[in-house]
Write a protein that binds this DNA or RNA. Structure first.
Lengths: 343, 343
DNA sequence: CTGAAAGCGCTTACAG
DNA sequence: CTGAAAGCGCTTACAG
């Protein structure tokens, strides 16, 4: 009986048309706000829709028309607040166009990513915003081209043939290094962690380049554990170096949070005994003490921009590939000082 | 021409059937792994699918069958890491069943929530996991029943007629109060912020009850700004009270982060001069110093549980409504000490 | 095990 | 402006 009711309650466009004394074609035109329909007719149909509780069936429409109004978003990690902000930007901008976003988490695994991509194709997504899992091969780009599926890469890239929106990581590293150098630091470490991908590589290369152009010794890359909980107790890695760094740049806000805690545990005062620069500048940067000087990358805006590019590409698949790289901003707060020459 | 190609490349089940020399019905059976098909036939069909690059069209199938394999998730805020973890649990558990999740952000606005719900119905979602926007009226529950749409409420509830999975906030508050009382605190504040909803109310009520049952003076509820960035500088509110609190329980990790910073700015040492208990226990709790004693609510597990309930309800819409409320765990770390009687 | 046929709810020319 | 008809890609009885 509840099944009965539910079945009964499914009202179709034909029901609406009958109730309004028009043909189904006319009702369809009203639905899509065609100017072909007279206003009295339109109103009659709209009333019928309301009275009957009609709900448009996008899936059925999709069968005839080439738009599902669904786009996919694949990120490597959902619990990282940085990706949450990215997603927030994507969802906001896509939602504003009346489309809907299917969310998926690749966990940075290429097989899982492959499965998700297939699932999304089965759902007929109009396109996807992809932050490629680490170790994704460039060949994926050819596959995507074969499929004829609009894709924009975000934050990480695997091919120049696809649209891309990301961050000018090299410039960000230069800002950090220049700032520290201006305070007198010469021995600067770059504390990294996590899987290797384009954004990782660009940061590392950017660090080396920035150090070189300041005529500083490059090369002090120190790898920390992937999990926030393990970073603090690995802080000693900083001091196991041949030359002890007076300043450290963090790969992202997770490393910054971990080291900020770990240095505190070592009895060091950040900003006096050692300088710390964060990267990504999510909300925490303001909240930890001392306030963290940080390179801001604006994840929400990046998500919005990626959404915009995807919408454009769906509208015109033959557009040449675009690559937009956004500027970083160094927010100077309280976590850096002059080097302590005693060390 | 690229259009041509794309159109050409759309291979249907009929193409597969022809290529494998079977009827479309048989191909469909293979697709759905029916045991009715002989294994040689099955293999022939599977090869044809592979050779032709066939992609199942779920949307077309949905038209015949009552399952879209899409579920919706509506949360009030995407940038709050707590909701990101919740979402992660939802996506993981739903994804594991082969379904896909449409994500949407209500921004805690009921009109927006209404629009999102409609959009999801248009997409024929099989059900939705809803964290109701603040001020959602109970009438929504009746609407949902009318629609015949499976819904599970998560974290916040508006009606007992709908499934719900949330947290035993009252028990969490009791744990916090009991712990502080056992250290000797008598003047305890509850620092709240954000919109009012069931989870808010339950925490406040739980606080009062817990204080009363310890024979302590209840009632010190102090409201802080909604934005993390504004909380630290509102810390003085704690001291504008008739009786200065020796301990404060935080509404969530955002308040905890903000106050932790603000108290530091006031020159107070947390755990010695004043005690702080967090709520939610997202990753940060381990990372701020002193380590934050916190009531853990396990958002990932809650998301998973909500997904499980939704799947059950979709399978059997006539199930009686279930309400699962998960236990909290008090993680004792370093942010609490005995009250300083000098104050 | 397989084929022919009807139908899910829409859109789109094509006539009127 | 409106109606009749075909078709999007699948599934589901129903015969064989």
């Amino acid at each position: 009986m509840s099944l009965e009711e539910r079945r009964k309650s499914r009202v179709t466009l034909l029901d609406v048309a009958r109730h309004a004394n028009v043909s189904r074609a006319t009702a369809s035109l009203v639905l899509r706000k065609s100017p072909l329909v007279g206003s009295e007719t339109r109103i009659r149909v709209e009333n019928a829709m309301r009275d009957l509780g009609y709900v448009y069936n996008i899936g059925a429409a999709r069968l005839r028309v080439e738009r599902s109004q669904i786009i996919g978003a694949i990120v490597p990690n959902l619990t990282n607040p940085f990706f949450a902000e990215l997603l927030s930007g994507i969802e906001g901008a896509i939602g504003a166009t009346g489309k809907v976003v299917i969310l998926a988490n690749s966990g940075d695994e290429v097989e899982r990513q492959e499965m998700l991509l297939r699932r999304m194709r089965e759902h007929g997504v109009d396109g996807v915003i992809l932050c490629p899992a680490a170790c994704t091969e460039q060949a994926l780009s050819d596959q995507i081209a074969d499929w004829g599926m609009p894709v924009v890469q975000v934050l990480r890239h695997i091919s120049r043939d696809l649209d891309y929106v990301g961050v000018d990581y090299a410039a960000g590293m230069r800002q950090a290094v220049d700032y520290l150098a201006s305070l007198g630091h010469e021995t600067i470490a770059f504390a990294v962690h996590g899987p290797i991908h384009s954004a990782y590589q660009e940061r590392v290369d950017g660090f080396h380049d920035a150090m070189r152009s300041r005529a500083l010794e490059p090369g002090m890359i120190i790898r920390f554990p992937a999990q926030l909980g393990d970073i603090a107790e690995a802080t000693h890695l900083l001091f196991d170096q041949p030359k002890r760094p007076t300043a450290v740049i963090c790969f992202n806000h997770i490393v910054a949070l971990g080291l900020s805690a770990g240095l505190h545990d070592c009895g060091l005062t950040i900003g006096r005994d050692i300088s710390l620069v964060g990267f990504d500048d999510v909300a925490d940067a303001e909240a930890i003490r001392p306030k963290l000087t940080s390179v801001a990358t604006g994840p929400v805006a990046i998500g919005e921009m990626a959404a915009r590019l995807l919408v454009d590409r769906i509208a015109d698949p033959d557009l040449p590939a675009r690559h937009v790289v956004s500027d970083t901003i160094l927010h100077i707060r309280q976590s850096c000082g002059r080097p302590d020459r005693k060390n």
